[in-house]
Simulated assay, not measured.
Amino acid sequence: MPFAPLKNDTFLRACWRQATDHTPVWLMRQAGRYLPEYLATRAKAGSFMGLATNVDYATEVTLQPLERFPLDAAILFSDILTVPDAMGLGLSFEAGEGPRFARPVRDEAGIGALAVPDMDKLRYVFDAVASIRRALDGRVPLIGFSGSPWTLACYMVEGAGSSDYRQVKTLLYSRPDLMHRLLAVNADAVAAYLNAQIDAGAQAVMVFDSWGGVLADGAFQAFSLAYTQRVLSQLRRDGADGRPVPRIVFTKGGGLWLEDMQPLACEVLGLDWTVNLGQARARVGEGPGGKALQGNIDPNVLFAHPRQIEEEVAKVLNSFGRPHTDPDSTGPTHIFNLGHGISQFTPPEHVATLVAAVHAQSRMLRA
């Protein structure tokens, strides 16, 4: 389907390690509970899933932060657990408790019965992607996303969020064969899901390996990284408009393994706030095979006074250093983001301060 020409391609250019006139910025969970307009729309929807499964509401809340802030990308409003929900695990959201599955999988029978779901069960997501892309009218690119195979497995086995990952790690160590079976199904399902988002109009896709960092060294490579690569290797390279689609991987707590992530079939690596950007640039961001880097200010910086926010933005930008500026070649580039999702208690005016500071200071860096 025809989409409007892109007016601001700064984010996509940075993904491809091309020179930009400023450092692009977007925020994980930028459409969310810190915005009063989001809370009003969610109240109309009646529940989180009522919001996420309604194309009009999902479109509305995706665009809300762009009406307030000059962000350089939009990200689909959805949830990382839509895929296992489509597998029949029974996703619900309890007030104050977060997501929960009615039917977690913890044994041979449960895991053996899993299969890549019919993507028609997730049609509401793809319809939302197309609707958002049209509503953006070329303002900024649209990012689609999914949870990683390992992160989905954590919720599918635990049945909810966890503080110790006892159930999923017990399965990993006692029955690695079952864990590999579960992760293989998840990887193929996530690949099909992201490809359907690309077909619907997503201009970049991101894999959230939110719980990769809870794994031991060795286990991360075998049970998380290998299956993230299985997803990436299956993804379509061109979008609905015929343009190439960059791939982003964010592993929270993954700073120890940047060299292991370097060969991933992706263009961008996201970093949490524990990683020094300059060191990450030296490790994986330089040279012809380097990755663009995304991140990585601590979300809690947004609770500080605006003057402190501006100072912390400067620290992050200076840590990365002067980005690539030659328009005729590729080189090290940075996409500014939080090191994880924005807190629901964040003052919106502090987000405005951060976005303005990133744009202004990053232009000065290039001068």
Rank of each mutant, 00 (worst) to 15 (best):
A216P: 01
D188M: 03
N186A: 12
V249G: 13
M261S: 02
A200E: 01
A222K: 15
R230L: 13
V205Q: 01
D209P: 08
F208G: 05
A226N: 05
F223G: 02
L194N: 10
D188P: 02
V214I: 10
L183M: 08
N195D: 07
G218N: 12
G253V: 09
G255D: 07
L232Q: 15
D217Y: 06
A189H: 02
A202R: 05
D188Q: 13
A191F: 05
R237K: 03
G239M: 05
A202D: 14
M206P: 06
P263Y: 02
A184M: 07
R236H: 14
C266P: 14
F250C: 10
L194E: 12
D241V: 10
L183H: 04
A222N: 14
L264H: 02
N186W: 14
T228S: 11
C266V: 13
R230Y: 11
L232V: 10
A200S: 10
A187G: 03
A265V: 12
M206E: 15
G218I: 06
V214T: 07
G218D: 03
P246W: 10
A204W: 01
V207Q: 03
D238T: 13
N195E: 00
E259D: 15
G255Q: 07
G212Y: 02
A226S: 13
D260T: 11
Q197T: 08
A226C: 09
G254W: 03
L264F: 05
K252V: 01
A191T: 13
V190Y: 06
